[in-house]
Design a protein around this nucleic acid. Structure first.
Lengths: 213, 213
DNA sequence: GCTTTGAGAGTACGACTGTTCACTGACTTC
DNA sequence: GAAGTCAGTGAACAGTCGTACTCTCAAAGC
């Protein structure tokens, strides 16, 4: 082992992570634009000044939170895309996967849903960029399926974006519904997904007029 | 005229409206949970104390804003539903109607998009209730169309909700894109709408197995 | 004409905010 | 083992915040 991290840097990372975790917790009942710097440091047990050793301000912390949340989202999308088999069951499993991830890590998903349209521009853009990346990822996966023969890249992106937006909307609905309303949300989310899938199956029906490839 | 409003009550309403307008303006760059009571009164030109003559706090003001915004949204939905004619053109006109309304009253739509998942529970619930009402309204209108023969009430509600959510998402996308990105947003929104419509047209294809009515 | 009402002003309160500065002392580096 | 680095401290800054009082004085009610 050539270079271990060093006690010093390890402590720093630990504090930084503490700030991120505390912020995520505090954001359950408020928006990022009202999150106080002191509020976060108090929850961690450090002085306000220490905050600046890690972030320029709460906006920068928000962007860092977006990057951290990437893992949660990416893992979920990966799990959904990795699922194979009959398309009907696949939809059901996808929604259940979403529900499971949301239950396991509510704070991350709440953060994304809340700040996607929130008051801090930098964070909004960071989330938008991330979701755009996911939409492309989904589009690529969809393009590899036989059902997507003849689809333009643009339409695949549209469909990928539709799935991603639907996913975010579902996570938010699950969070708002709570445990008792989860089954109903899952029901509707499945139906919506099915409708989109039906639309996908017949997307090219009326287009075979002369163009090809 | 039995009872004119009275100079006194007229002034009060004027101040109240001033508070609402000022708040809506201030909310362009921040969320409701960070909106200060004093900040609003300062923008109107009244003392902080005067605020309490109209609202219990900023949360109550937020709920009042939701009710006020009802007009903007309802007018837009009415305009879309009133549209008739060929379904393909209708989609295009719907999206253009949305774009026009968003351009005309950006603040109202931004408010709804932002606070729909925002940090103030009461406002979130007020918006959810309102959108639910719109979804029912749309579902009813859809049910009256010949394309909806054989649709269950639940599926109509699902479709109505899908349209409403898509609408809100589009307004938010338009606001984030700005004037220069509007055309692209409109393009994608139209395509999404078309996909849903295709799905709608074939929704019952695989269901004719035995049940009827 | 009198009294009553109530929207808004004015003042004051303690608590909280973001940011600055000089500082300490444990860790790293040579 | 001495010198340097730097994450975190502690105090202080000028503001802002929400809310509680009393007060005013024009409109409303009789």
């Amino acid at each position: 082992m050539s270079h271990t991290i060093g006690i010093r840097q390890a402590q720093k990372l630990k504090t930084r992570q503490g700030l991120l975790d505390a912020a995520l917790g505090l954001l359950e009942h408020q928006s990022l634009s009202s999150l106080g710097l002191r509020e976060v440091t108090r929850a961690v047990g450090v002085t306000p000044t220490a905050f600046y050793r890690h972030f320029d301000g709460t906006a920068a912390l928000g962007v860092a939170l977006v990057e951290e949340t990437l893992d949660s989202l990416h893992g979920m999308i990966g799990a959904i895309l990795a699922d194979t088999g009959d398309s009907e069951e696949r939809l059901d499993r996808s929604v259940e996967l979403i529900a499971r991830h949301v239950t396991a890590q509510p704070a991350h998903f709440r953060f994304i849903a809340r700040e996607q349209h929130g008051g801090v521009g930098e964070v909004r853009e960071a989330i938008a960029a991330q979701l755009r990346g996911f939409a492309e990822e989904v589009a690529e996966a969809l393009g590899a399926e036989p059902e997507s023969a003849g689809w333009s890249r643009e339409d695949l992106l549209m469909l990928g974006g539709l799935y991603v937006d639907h996913m975010v909307l579902t996570t938010s609905a699950l969070l708002d519904a709570g445990p008792e309303g989860e089954r109903e949300v899952v029901r509707v989310a499945r139906r919506r997904l099915r409708l989109v899938t039906v639309g996908r199956a017949h997307w090219l029906d009326g287009e075979a007029l002369g163009s090809e490839s």
